[in-house]
Design a protein around this nucleic acid. Sequence first.
RNA 1: GGGUCGCUAGCUCAGUGGUAGAGCAUUCGGCUUUUAACCGACUGGUCCUGGGUUCGAAUCCCAGGCGACCCA
Length: 530
Amino acid sequence: MASDSSPNSPNSDDSNDSGISAIRAARLQKVEELKQLGMTPYAYTWEVTHPVADLQAKFVDLAAGAEADFDVSIAGRIMARRVFGKLAFFTLQDETGTIQLYLDKKTIQAEMGAADEQAFEHLKKLTDAGDILGARGTIKRTDKGELSVKVKQYAMLTKSLLPLPDKFHGLTDVAKRYRQRYVDLIVNPEVRDTFRKRAQITAAIRRHLDQLGYLEVETPVLQSEPGGAEARPFVTYHNTLDMELYLRIATELHLKRMVVGGFEKVFELGRVFRNEGVSTRHNPEFTTIEMYQAYGDYQNMMALTETMIEAIAQSVTGSTTVTYQGEDISFARPWQRITMHEAVQAKTGIDFSQFDDLAEAKKAATAAGIREVDGCKSIGHVLNEAFEQAVEETLRQPTFVTDYPVEISPLSKPHRSKPGLVERFELFTVGRETANGFSELTDPVDQRERLELQAAKKEAGDLEACSVDEDFITALEYGMPPTVGMGIGIDRLVMVLTDAASIRDVIAFPLLKPEKSDSLSEAVDSPVDL
RNA sequence: GGGUCGCUAGCUCAGUGGUAGAGCAUUCGGCUUUUAACCGACUGGUCCUGGGUUCGAAUCCCAGGCGACCCA
């Protein structure tokens, strides 16, 4: 598993003493010294009696200079060392926070003398910032007011070979933070908070849906025919079946099969994959939740959506109002609802419902400053362009946009009273699409026609269009109850609730191009100097 | 895909044509109330890569890599 290209794994036989190599060599030497002293540098267990945050809370009222007769055993990473001749202070960090270790020579030598008569000197010599240490002792608040564990015994649990980033400035290089997220997590507490909140959000969603009687299911990632969205798929290959497979671009079509099968409330929270560019709002693999409820329509699902997200915001951030990049966003119900036609008319002055002719619609849109309408194949597409260009960015507070044109909604049920439209909604927050739901199309004949239109686009070279999923049509022919479905982009929701500017801040290991590999070995292998 | 900006020690950053720098970390010495500890000494470099211009390039030019932001 050794990687030659890693900047932090210099060759072990490399005798030059450039910075990192020298530090690493010195620490490997300490590993040997620990072994010779009978202290394993890589321990097996350590009894932990308290997370340090619990201690900070429990002794919040302990006076400066006071000691508590309270035994604790803790473990964590040394984040900082302040060492004197016969006294040392370490800052120890566990998952919950930090606490100071008060290490005085007299106490440690008295307590550990039998095991190691040089215990304090070895502590000074053989520990470094970055090491993982176990410590047992009592609670004390120092004269300067810092809550501390007055250490009686310590043990090296894991010796660290590589230096931590600057203790004051931390790690700020964004590329390095993403590539070596473990270092980012060690030194940047707010990054740990983000991923803790992310877990709280998904847990809260599961709890909410569980209480409503939803069943969590798992559907295939590997598919012979991707569908349920318009996106380019990733292609992979199954060796023994000798066939190409695609990574799913949505969970929709399989979840609907579950509804056909009789599960009336199902959801899947999982990863989908879309073969598209990378930006602050796009990662090629991202997490969605899709949920389906039989016998409900899009009005029911809008109600569920705002109830659920309001509850999540409250439980995760402690408020229904969050600040996103300096802007206050209120998730308090009720949220604004506006039809797509109304929204576009409000921003452009154009009433697209009046058009019968595509050319007329394009002309009006262009006159209103909407770009790139030439390629639009229908009035609905022009309307959608107008919406994306003139409206989307302006929808800051949570807003449901409803009643989309059928041309851009191939899986939605026709609107019960508005010809040409479907019963669909999308949720926009801080100008971004955050959720998408609709009364599901259950008519298998209509569905086949719509998917065949998509298939024709694919034939014509549209890489984001899908073929007809025959088995899905077959499922609909057995009969799907009236159903509403909805999907949420979990990453984007987490971004808003954690005030993250980039989707990469809420994905632990975002996709990055590999750093250029060391060209030295290639140069050696290649006799030709190009 | 286009534009702008960035890449120098483990980390954070100075350095705009003339010997490669600072702080922190590391190493050594001192210190029993520190918390960006302090004091003293030292060490540490593929200046992202490859070409070019020049007596001389971290610096100027060209190409490439990776990243950030903006636009599409």
